[in-house]
Simulated scan of single mutants.
Amino acid sequence: MHAKTDSEGTSVDTTWPPRSPPRRPVYYVQSPSNHDVEKMSYDGSSPAGSPPHHFYHCSPIHHSRESSTSRFSASLKNPRSLSAWKHVQLNGHRRAGLDDDDDDDGDEFVAGGVRGFGSSRYNSVRVYILGLCFFVLLFTLFCLILWGASKSYAPKIAVKSMVFENFNVQAGNDGSGVPTDMLSLNSTVKIHYRNPGTFFAVHVTSTPLELHYFQLKLASGQMKKFSQPRKSGRTVVTVVKAHQVPMYGGVPVLANAYTNMGRVAVPLNLTFTVRSRAYILGRLVKSKFYTKVRCRLTLHGNHLGTPHNLTNACFYG
């Protein structure tokens, strides 16, 4: 028996032994395009639609890309040699490496996008913070300018006069029953107050007005609080009085006052502090002015009801 080999490398029997049964034909089943493994069938019965001749002649078209893909898929299933198996593994690793590179590029793109978004958001926050700081700085500067300007408009205070309407010293007993001289008096003080401020009003309060004989307090009175509009003034009248104040011999000039009141002359000091608050920009900007007043005067028993001029007798600080 002789075999003939064609140019494509396919062996075909040319002679057949006599009286031998016909040999089963060989069929090549082409794998579909989804790279399934090529199946070779040596079935005993001929399927329907098979060619009637005894051999299959391979044409050059079967060595196309589809045939090579089929052989590659078959080699995945049944590698014929060690070198083929290594070749298959190497191709698989290269393909996996390409897929990983694509995934890494996508991750870097996503991460870059996230980083870019975070950076832009951070820059926006910085812009807002800088704008807020700039606004606070300007507002603070504006408030300082108003506060400094208000300091040149300190209130003007002048004690005009004081009138002793009555004065009386008599013998009596203190709260514990100790006999001593008891003093009573009633007087009024006129104070002129002026607010020279051009853009703010002031709220005025005062400490108690006190009459002292050296360190001994004889009488006191409280000035009512008020609000003074800008560029305006008023005269405030405050009552300073004393009722049954025990002397305990602390005022020697009053020893014989109840017998000879016309000759009594008692040196006194009138002291108090005027507090003025200017609300320039609501409650945010406030200016405070404190004026301490001290006036020296003399109480004469024969000048009751006569105003004492204190224009030049007071000190302001």
Rank of each mutant, 00 (worst) to 15 (best):
P246V: 00
M261P: 15
N269M: 11
V266G: 10
A242I: 01
G250E: 03
V245F: 05
V251G: 01
T271E: 13
N269R: 11
L254Q: 04
M247H: 10
P267D: 10
A265G: 06
V240H: 05
A255G: 03
F272P: 09
N269L: 09
N260V: 11
L254T: 04
H243G: 09
A265T: 07
R263M: 13
G249F: 02
T238M: 07
L268R: 00
H243E: 11
R275F: 12
Y248M: 06
P267M: 08
V245C: 04
A257H: 03
N260Y: 09
V245G: 04
V240T: 08
P252C: 05
A242L: 09
V245H: 06
V251C: 03
V239W: 05
G249S: 03
R263G: 13
V251R: 06
K241R: 15
K241I: 12
P252M: 04
N260A: 12
A265D: 00
V264Y: 05
N269W: 02
N256D: 15
L254C: 02
P252Y: 05
R275M: 11
A242Q: 04
M261W: 13
V266K: 01
R263S: 15
N269D: 12
A255V: 01
V239P: 04
Q244D: 10
N256P: 10
G262W: 14
L268C: 01
V253R: 13
M247Q: 12
A242R: 08
V245Q: 09
L254H: 00
T259F: 13
V239A: 10
V245S: 04
N256V: 15
T238W: 10
M247R: 11
M247Y: 06
L270W: 03
P246T: 02
Q244C: 09
R275Q: 12
L254S: 00
P252E: 07
